[in-house]
Simulated scan of single mutants.
Amino acid sequence: MASGVYLTFFGSFVFGTPGFPLSDVPLQAIAEDVAAGRLDATPSRVFGFGEIREAHRVMEANQAGGKMVVVLT
C-alpha cells in the first residue's frame, strides 16, 4: 500500500463476551451524538460493492482523503 494509505478493520475477540457484553457499549448514545452533530462520522468516500475496483484504485492512488466505506447495494 502507498504511504499514507491505511486499511483498517475493527475486530475483537472480547467484544460481546461475558467480560465485555454488547450491552456495555453505548451504541445508541454514539448514534445520537452523530445525528446531533457532536461526533463527525462522515466518511470521505462511500462506494457501492459494485464499485470495489474503483475503491481500490482510489486507495492505491493515495486519493482517499480519509476513511472510505464500501456498502452492499
Rank of each mutant, 00 (worst) to 15 (best):
R57L: 04
G37D: 15
A36H: 08
P21I: 04
T42R: 14
G4V: 01
R38L: 14
G19N: 09
E51W: 11
V71S: 12
A64G: 08
G48N: 08
G4W: 08
P21E: 06
V14N: 09
P43A: 06
I52N: 13
L22A: 01
V14M: 05
G48A: 12
Y6C: 02
L22E: 13
G11M: 07
M1C: 03
L39D: 15
E51Q: 15
A35M: 08
V25T: 04
A35H: 08
D40Y: 11
M68V: 07
M59I: 05
S44M: 03
E32G: 05
Y6E: 00
D40T: 12
V58L: 10
V71P: 11
T73M: 14
Q28T: 05
V25D: 06
V34N: 03
E54P: 07
V58H: 01
L39W: 07
F9T: 00
Y6W: 10
A31H: 07
I30G: 15
V69R: 04
F9M: 06
A29I: 11
L39R: 08
V5A: 00
L39P: 06
S23K: 12
A31P: 12
V46N: 09
P18V: 07
D33V: 08
L39E: 14
V71Y: 05
V71M: 12
V46M: 13
A31S: 15
P21F: 03
S23G: 03
M68D: 11
N62C: 01
A35K: 14
F9G: 07
S3M: 10
D40G: 04
S3R: 14
L27D: 00
A35V: 00
D40L: 07
T73P: 01
F9N: 08
S23P: 12
R57W: 09
S3H: 01
P18H: 11
G19R: 07
T73V: 03
V14E: 14
G16M: 13
P21T: 00
G66L: 11
D40A: 13
A35G: 03
